[in-house]
Amino acid sequence: QIFVKTLTGKTITLEVEPSDTIENVKAKIQDKEGIPPDQQRLIFAGKQLEDGRTLSDYNIQKESTLHLVL
């Protein structure tokens, strides 16, 4: 699982696999929060994550925290 922290300070927990794409993660966030993926920007280690890449591409491991910017 990974954590996604929103600007409001809320933390969302997501069940993911390293092979999941960023697009996939955004879809999971939409399921939980109702935020359309095209409004979501995910930041990890100061980098904006691209939809077509996977979590493992960015070396995002379990218990990692991503930041969600709208």
Rank of each mutant, 00 (worst) to 15 (best):
Gln40Thr: 05
Thr54His: 06
Pro37Gly: 07
Val25Ala: 02
Val25Thr: 03
Phe3Met: 06
Lys10Thr: 09
Glu23Phe: 14
Ile43Asp: 05
Pro18Lys: 06
Thr21Ser: 08
Leu7Asp: 13
Lys10Asp: 08
Gln1Ile: 15
Glu63Cys: 15
Arg41Val: 15
Gln48Gly: 06
Glu15Trp: 13
His67Phe: 11
Leu55Cys: 06
Asp57Pro: 00
Lys32Cys: 11
Pro37His: 11
Pro36Gln: 07
Val4Ser: 00
Thr54Lys: 13
Leu55Pro: 01
Lys26Leu: 04
Val4Pro: 01
Leu70Glu: 10
Ile12Asn: 01
Gly52Trp: 12
Glu17Tyr: 10
Thr54Val: 06
Leu7Gln: 15
Thr6Phe: 15
Leu66Ser: 01
Arg41Thr: 15
Glu23Arg: 14
Glu63Ala: 10
Ala45Arg: 12
Asn59Arg: 07
Leu7Glu: 15
Leu70His: 10
Asp38Glu: 13
Glu33Tyr: 09
Gln30Cys: 14
Gly46Phe: 04
Ile2Val: 06
Glu50Thr: 06
His67Asp: 10
Leu14Ala: 02
Thr54Met: 11
Gln30Ile: 03
Glu17Lys: 07
Arg53Glu: 05
Val69Trp: 10
Gln39Pro: 02
Val4Tyr: 02
Leu42Ile: 07
Thr54Gly: 03
Val16Ser: 04
Lys28Gly: 03
Glu50Ser: 07
Leu49Gln: 00
Leu70Tyr: 10
Leu55Trp: 03
Thr8Cys: 15
Val69Pro: 01
Gln40Arg: 02
Gly9Asp: 05
Gln48Cys: 15
Gln61Lys: 12
Glu17Ile: 09
Tyr58Cys: 04
Gly46Arg: 04
Asp31Glu: 14
Ser64Glu: 09
Ala45Asp: 14
Pro36Gly: 06
Asp31Met: 14
Thr6Leu: 15
Leu70Asp: 11
Gln39Ile: 11
Gln48Asp: 13
Leu7Gly: 12
Phe44Cys: 05
Lys5Asn: 06
Leu70Thr: 12
Glu15Met: 13
Ile12Tyr: 06
Leu49Lys: 00
Lys26Phe: 03
Asp31Ile: 13
Asn24Arg: 13
Lys10Glu: 09
Glu63Asp: 15
Ile43Glu: 09
Gln40Ile: 12
Asp38Gln: 11
Gly34His: 07
Ala27Asp: 07
Thr8Gly: 11
Tyr58Ala: 03
Ala27Pro: 00
Phe44Thr: 02
Gly52Leu: 09
Ala45Tyr: 08
Asn24Trp: 10
Tyr58Pro: 00
Thr21Phe: 08
Phe3Thr: 07
Ile60Lys: 01
Lys28Ile: 06
Asp51His: 06
Leu70Gln: 10
Gln30Phe: 13
Gln39Phe: 09
Gln40Ala: 05
Gln48Phe: 14
Lys32Phe: 08
Leu42Pro: 01
Lys47Pro: 02
Lys47Asn: 11
Leu68Thr: 02
Thr21Glu: 03
Gln40Gly: 03
Asn59Phe: 08
Leu70Ser: 11
Phe44Asp: 02
Gln48His: 10
Leu55Val: 08
Ile35Ser: 04
